[in-house]
Design a protein around this nucleic acid. Structure first.
Lengths: 241, 241
DNA sequence: CGAAAACTTGATTAGCATCAAACCAGGTGG
DNA sequence: CCACCTGGTTTGATGCTAATCAAGTTTTCG
C-alpha cells in the first residue's frame, strides 16, 4: 500500500509545496502558471512509496497519473505463467500512467525500486487542465513520444547482443537514474531484476556482476547500492564493439 | 523514392477519394466531418510504395504523418555498426510518424514490406485540424498509446523465450496483418528480416521455417507469401508452454 | 544464360541455461 | 546474545540452444 505523507500544516500547505516543487519546471505542471496552481494543489496527493511497493497494477482502472519527484520505478508485465519482464525504468520528472488520461486501464505494473517520492494527479484534473491549457496537451504528447523512444531504446540496447554487452549497457542506463543526493551512488538491482530486464537467468547476471567487480567497473557499496567507474565502463563497452 | 499516383481526374477528385476511403472511419480523418474534408483533401497526397522502398528515414525532419490504407510496413533502426533491428510492424489503418506532429525528426526508418497504399498528411494540416477538432487530439493520443502498447508487446512476446517460441509468436503477429484481398495469405518475410525481428541469425530462422513446413504449420506459396494453419500454429504454441 | 542474391542444410563451437551446492545477511524467537 | 531460518547471492559442473563457419542449392534479374 502506498503511504500518504503526514498532512501538511496550514503554514506549509500543498500549494507552497507545489509552487516550490523541485521538479515542477520539468514536470507536467511546469506548463501551468502559479495562479492556476492555487486552484488545483489540493487535489494533488503527495506520496512516498517503499521499495517493492506498487504504484499501480496492470489492468486497474487508471484514476490518476504519477509524477516522480525522486527514486526509481520499474514498469513490468507478468504473463499468466508467472514470467516477469521489466519493460523499462522511470526516474525523476517522469510521468507514469499516461493511459489514464484516455480512461484506459494501466498497461503495466509500476513498482518502486528505491524509496520513491511521487505525486498523484487525478485523471479528471489533468483532463480539465488540458481544456484550458493547450501547452499541457502538447506536453502530454511529448511525454508519450518519449515513452515510445524509451521503449524502442530498451528493445535495441538492452535486448540485443551478448549477455555481457547487455549488462554493460544496463549500467549505462542505471547511471542516468543515479541521484546526486547519494553521492553518485547507483541503484543496484537484485540479480533477479537484472535478469528480468536483460532477459537472462539470475545466475548469469550474478556471474557477470562478479566479472565487472574484478575488472573494477562496479564496486558494491551495500546490498542495494553500487559505485560505477564510468571510464572503465565506457572502455569495456567500446572493446565489446 | 515513394511514387505518387497519377493525378485524379476532375470527375474523381481526391475529395471523393477521401470521403469514400475504405479506411477513413478507422483512420485519423475519421474524426473529421465530410464538410471539413472538402477543405483539406487537396493537401493529402496518396502514394503507392513498392516493397523495400522507404516511407521515411530516422533523423529526417518529420514533414508529414502517414496513414496506411493497405500493405505492411516495418519500423526499424540501424546502429552505426550496421546492426539492423526491426522494432515492430504496421498495417492497415495504422498512423506512422506521430512524432512529426511535435516537430521532431522521425525516430525510426519506415520501410514497405509489401506493396503499400498510403496517404501523406502534412504536419501543418494535422496541427490546424487539431485546433478545431479536440476529438482529433484525443485520437492522436490514443494512437500514441497504441504504439506504446505495441512496443511493449513486441518486447515481451517477440524478444523472450526460445527461438522456436519467438518464431511461432511471429506467425501469430503476421496473421494479424494478412489482407483478406489475397485470400488469407500471409506476408512471408525474408529470413534476414525474420532475424532482425526475432533477434536471431537468418540461418536459425531458416531452420525453424523448415521445421514448421514439415509440421504443416506454414506452407510457402511463393517467395513472399505463405499460408498458415492456425489450428496447428495454436497447438504448437500451446505445447511450447 | 550467367552472376548475384537469397535460401537451405550440415558440422562445429561458444554462450548461456540448468541443476546443484555452498555461502552470506538480515530478521526472529528462544 | 546467539542459534536458527529464510531469501538472496555466488560459484561450480554439465548439457542444450543457437551462433558461426562452410558448402551447396534455388531463385531472381539484367
Amino acid at each position: 500500500m502506498p503511504l500518504r505523507v503526514a498532512a501538511v500544516s496550514v503554514f506549509n500547505p500543498q500549494a507552497l509545496a507545489c509552487r516550490d516543487c523541485s521538479v515542477r519546471q520539468f514536470a507536467l505542471l511546469g506548463a501551468v502558471d502559479e495562479a492556476a496552481l492555487v486552484h488545483i494543489h489540493h487535489r494533488i496527493d503527495s506520496v512516498i512509496v517503499q521499495p517493492g511497493e506498487t504504484l499501480f497494477r496492470a489492468g486497474d482502472t487508471g484514476h490518476d497519473l504519477i509524477t516522480l519527484r525522486s527514486g526509481v520505478v520499474r514498469l513490468e508485465r507478468s504473463s499468466e505463467q508467472g514470467e516477469r519482464r521489466i519493460l523499462r525504468l522511470a526516474g525523476r520528472t517522469d510521468l507514469l500512467g499516461l493511459e489514464a488520461v484516455l480512461g484506459q486501464t494501466y498497461a503495466s505494473d509500476a513498482v518502486a525500486c528505491t524509496v520513491v517520492e511521487a505525486c498523484r494527479l487525478p485523471r479528471a484534473m489533468v483532463d480539465e487542465l488540458c481544456a484550458g491549457h493547450p501547452v499541457l496537451t502538447r506536453d502530454l504528447m511529448k511525454r508519450w513520444q518519449r515513452a515510445l523512444d524509451d521503449a524502442d531504446e530498451w528493445l535495441t540496447e538492452l535486448s540485443t547482443g551478448t549477455a555481457r554487452h547487455r549488462m554493460l549497457r544496463l549500467w549505462l542506463k542505471l547511471s542516468e537514474y543515479s541521484d546526486a543526493r547519494d553521492g553518485g551512488l547507483v541503484w543496484l538491482p537484485s540479480r533477479h531484476d537484472m535478469g528480468a530486464m536483460l532477459n537472462m537467468t539470475f545466475e548469469t547476471a550474478s556471474r557477470l556482476i562478479s566479472a565487472l567487480r574484478k575488472e573494477g567497473v562496479v564496486t558494491l557499496v551495500d546490498s542495494r547500492h553500487a559505485r560505477l567507474d564510468m571510464d572503465r565502463l565506457l572502455a569495456a563497452l567500446k572493446e565489446d564493439t
